[in-house]
Design a protein around this nucleic acid. Structure first.
Lengths: 290, 290
DNA sequence: TTGTCTCCCTTTGGGAGACAA
DNA sequence: TTGTCTCCCAAAGGGAGACAA
């Protein structure tokens, strides 16, 4: 049993350096794919804009997503207001190495009272999330994820997003290459066959399904980027939460870390970094006018 | 492809409640299995004893184990000494849900100067880790982990640890049930066959190997507990580190959380919780005499 | 004593059209 | 239009002894 896409039949997984985390920093994750995966309700504030950050809300969200409960008291952070008005210095888009779920890393800097008095013209006011048009998203059926056979491509989706088939061939078929969020390539046979005729992805599909551990109810989405590359993203259905950082940090440290980092930044007006998971409860970075 | 042990051929995986983390708290992980997995160099301090805790060392260790680098400055914790003399209030043994690697959760309380003056008689001084005798540990070979065939049991190990076979049968064989660190049961066919004769685990073995994602170089260990149950633990070979808590906490928060929790506890003499991973660099909870 | 190989046969599962919702 | 089924055949894989380190 070989779950890696580097296996014979599947697409070639490029050799990974020791730390995938580091390598990911170096290449830019496709913004349209990120937004397509995040969904139409998610928008990222623009760099330079002012945002409201709620440390307590964020802490609760992390707590919920890791299924951890507090074991002891949380220290009080008298310097930590319920909400911080911050300037957004940096946003980078990421995808979890295990699950392909998208998240963003943001560098925030709390604004001093003086800076808050400064006039502020928001450069772009709430730039709505630009959902790409040249894409399709399909929720996987039991047949799509079964071991017998491949993926049934909705007709309009195939016609809109996949390169046109050569219908002089019998049957019409081609090889598709698609890059996932980490830049790994996956190879699929795209064929138009059956009675009645329909578009299917066959060879390569089941390797993708098992490598990404997709099940019926999860969604896949295909999209073309500006660089004429086919991209492939995932939206996982909600399911029993994974319990992530066991054996590394106690839940106390996790909570306190988040609050302490914000408190320290607030008292020194220095930058701090948060992870924004668009899939959690409504996150509390909001656009605001200074 | 079904990787769960609840599948037809394998042992029955008991129904899991929504949160495995919580359920694990309720049952007591077998101490001998924990120590066998942790190895002979690891010993846990006794509850009530005094220990030295090095927050900075712990922080660096977590940093190394998660492959995360700091993105911004760490605040200074003026109240946080380089080492804290603490009383150990609680120790619980755990195993990572993903990897089965053992770790311990400890509740520490920094001692006040007054308490430090109190006479202190260590109840048990450095109780050496009690390695069980009725156990064996084998490093898996390429054959043990290949898809063709099962697990070759070293002869003495099988005779010492497995129930004796009925040699009047031809071939002698029995069914073994073994519980892993999470209490899940795995079923194996134990047979004595071949030319020359040897002990083998066949049916059920490959399901275990793929479910636990074991590879050649990893080790398995079998042990009997007081309750007459066969237990099954894992020691993984060192390999490229997993990058654990991505998309949950920034590395900054992780560092700061650990230090801030210790600093807060130190200044208030309140209890705090740490995770002790015996596999990392020598950890810095040391026995000490008050 | 035990790790690897190869052989044999069962099981799994890709890939096709049939058929029905 | 597309989800599921079944059929057919290729590939994967378990379980056995052979053989050698």
């Amino acid at each position: 049993m070989n779950l890696s896409p580097s296996a014979a039949a599947g697409g070639g997984l490029p050799d990974q350096p020791a730390s995938p985390e580091v390598s990911e920093e170096h290449k830019c994750l496709n913004s349209e794919l990120w937004h397509a995966c995040a969904g139409p309700l998610v928008s990222l504030p623009a760099v330079g804009s002012r945002v409201l950050y709620f440390p307590q809300g964020h802490s609760e969200q992390v707590s919920a997503s890791t299924n951890k409960e507090m074991e002891s008291q949380i220290p009080n952070y008298p310097n930590l207001p319920a909400q911080l008005i911050c300037q957004l210095h940096n946003v980078t888009m990421h995808a979890d190495a295990e699950t392909d779920e998208v998240y963003a890393q943001m560098t925030l800097q709390p604004l001093s009272p003086q800076e808050l008095k400064d006039p502020f013209l928001p450069a772009e006011l709430g730039n709505a999330s630009k959902q790409p048009t040249n894409y399709f998203c399909k929720t996987l059926t039991a047949s799509d994820t079964s071991t017998h056979g491949g993926f049934s491509v909705p007709r309009r989706a195939a016609e809109k997003v996949f390169p046109p088939l050569d219908f002089t061939q019998q049957p019409p078929a081609q090889e598709l290459m698609a890059k996932d969020l980490h830049g790994n390539e996956w190879k699929f046979r795209h064929i138009f066959r059956g009675q009645p005729k329909r578009h299917l992805l066959t060879t390569g599909w089941s390797i993708f399904i098992s490598a990404k551990r997709l099940v019926a109810g999860d969604s896949v989405l295909f999209i073309w980027n500006d660089n004429n590359q086919l991209l492939l993203g995932i939206r996982r259905a909600n399911r029993s939460q994974t319990v992530m950082p066991s054996s590394v940090l106690s839940s106390d440290s996790m909570h306190i870390g988040l609050l302490a980092a914000a408190a320290h930044a607030a008292s020194t007006n220095s930058r701090f970094t948060i992870f924004y998971n668009p899939k959690s409860k409504p996150f509390r970075v909001c656009h605001t006018i200074g």
